[in-house]
Design a protein around this nucleic acid. Structure first.
Lengths: 341, 341
DNA sequence: ATGAAAGCGCTAACAC
DNA sequence: GTGTTAGCGCTTTCAT
């Protein structure tokens, strides 16, 4: 059974394909097409299960109903959860998602953007790596709806959705300080991305304000856990005087826990812990790890809402918006000073 | 700057667009097009950064270079990791991925398949829910390349990639028995999917063989963790005599750990633990949880290899293959009997 | 109120 | 070797 086209059904019904097209696109009223005809067409279409070829439609209209989603790494639970939520909302609104992981690699990202353009995606949701400013700018210049999230590009004016990174780490660091910890390290990935810089700054500000000395360890991002745990191990062994460690991301945090376990360190007695991003690993660790929970649902919701908005308003120039969401600091056993101060 | 089409560049070079098309598609040799012309075209194309419109190409050729990937839930670390790996391989071979989560919902899946068809995806990778047999069959009947994974549909003859579920649970259950545990429960999601049934059977076989009594608890699948933890809690409270629990999936396992923590049970003294699927949560729990590690890379690799194969061989009727991979049972502290038997 | 026809950008049979 | 041309299936202007 060959798939039928609009022509087939037009022929079968002895009507012009134009009319069919109008009816199928809900413009029957507007075109004053006879109600009786409309029903007849509708009925037949349902009967044979005709579906317009969306490729042809896209070619003609220039709209693909596809949204491109570019995250750092889809296997990271943070991004996976957001992707899931965005996916749901997108499908409900008639959009499909094409996604991919950038690995924070500028060239790969550039290539992917080009692929997306080529595919005529209608909109872009991107957690951008550094160095991609020009590509994003040109996307925007060409009128493509773009929403950044998790971080933004200071030199590009776009809509973006973020959390209050600086306050989050400041606040959590302050908590450690209030608990009486003095030698607090901050371990993060080496990155100039805004969210990473803001987080680092929040930590620094808190220490500064309290007259404490910062210990910062930046690790080169890698897919290979060994390459993260190695430097972490070295760092922790070298700084025996530390009494608390702040992990800048969930990935660093997880690797950190593994290293701490392998070193046989006691939490929080030997070392207190706080990590960015909250997820099961932290909740189930013994003791559970204090963590900064990002409002995943709110982020996904904001992102897709903003994008759908841009997609639906024909007007090119709505002023772009920045949405900054609050995080939720979950204080748990890993950062509570033992009673005998 | 308007995006240019093949016609523009043909005009600009005073050549027919056919010639351009041939050159761009690497058929210059075959068509004996002058090397000099080829170079000239190539140079100009590079210069202006011309990219063929893939929509038009797809419309014409019927190929979209898109693979549809349907998993149960992209935010589940197992599926997220596999998706990531498949994505990489697919991109390297010139394919993009459109993915979505089925939630094990037959109707949703049916709709998604229809969307994929409509989008003319070139191939399908599916972790199928129950009840979707007919849709898959018709896909195959129409000559679409389909690879199932994680589970299969007994009534449909397709290529699929799976692990040896039955042996995996049998083996791990035997381990518990050898450690001296007598009252071993198996907690899983209620499901008739092959992998779930096989896992359950492996457990039953082991108990049978050892003359032990099974305790089986099936939980209704849900996105909402509360709805999983509730029944779990009830079950554990009701069966105080249990000395070991086997979790049938990573999700059940994670929820199980939360419940065990909230109940204040000691692992493995109060309760020994084994779970299907290995991931960070299990590795970092105290004590670390014995787990059946699926060979993620091998699964992803097999899936995409099989699919690419089907995509590239024009022949319709290669006999379909089933690939069954081995798992790796990681024995850890959660299932070792305390020394004083 | 309905239909004819142009055209979105590309490929490939078929001429020349 | 290179160009002409007919679609792929759809939307939309314009004429009737």
């Amino acid at each position: 059974m060959k798939k039928l086209s609009i022509v087939d059904i037009a022929n079968h019904l002895n009507v012009s394909k134009t009319t069919i097209s109008f009816i199928l696109n809900g413009r029957a009223q507007e075109k004053r097409i006879g109600k009786e005809l409309v029903d007849r067409v509708q009925k037949f279409v349902d009967e044979v299960g005709y579906k317009p070829n969306s490729l042809a439609k896209s070619l003609r209209t220039g709209k693909s109903n596809i949204i491109g989603l570019m995250v750092e790494d889809i296997s990271n639970p943070f991004f996976a959860s957001i992707a899931r939520l965005i996916e749901d909302r997108a499908y409900k609104n008639g959009y499909k998602i094409i996604y991919c992981s950038t690995d924070n690699d500028t060239n790969k990202t550039r290539e992917l953007i080009s692929m997306f353009r080529d595919r005529h995606v209608d909109g872009y949701i991107i957690a951008p790596p550094e160095g991609i400013e020009d590509d994003i700018s040109s996307l925007i210049k060409d009128g493509m709806p773009v929403v950044l999230f998790d971080r933004h590009l200071p030199k590009v004016s776009t809509d973006f959705v973020e959390i209050d990174n600086l306050f989050s780490t400041y606040n959590a660091t302050m908590h450690l300080i209030q608990q009486g910890y003095k030698n607090i390290a901050y371990i993060t990935f080496a990155s100039n991305q805004t969210q990473m810089q803001d987080r680092l700054q929040g930590y620094k500000d808190a220490l500064d304000e309290s007259g404490l000395k910062p210990f910062i360890q930046e690790i080169v991002f890698s897919q290979n856990e060994e390459l993260i745990m190695g430097p972490l191990n070295t760092f922790l062994k070298k700084h025996k005087n530390l009494d608390a460690v702040f992990f800048g991301t969930n990935h660093v945090g997880t690797c950190g826990l593994k290293v701490i376990n392998s070193l046989g360190l006691k939490v929080p007695d030997d070392l207190a812990l706080v990590s960015f991003d909250d997820y099961d690993v932290f909740k189930l660790f013994s003791p559970p790890v204090s963590a900064i929970a990002q409002p995943i649902e709110a982020i996904a919701d904001s992102v897709i809402t903003v994008l759908l908005n841009k997609l639906n308003t024909s007007s090119q120039h709505i002023s772009s918006q920045s949405i900054i969401l609050k995080t939720d600091f979950q204080i748990r056993g890993s950062s509570k000073k033992a009673d005998k101060a």
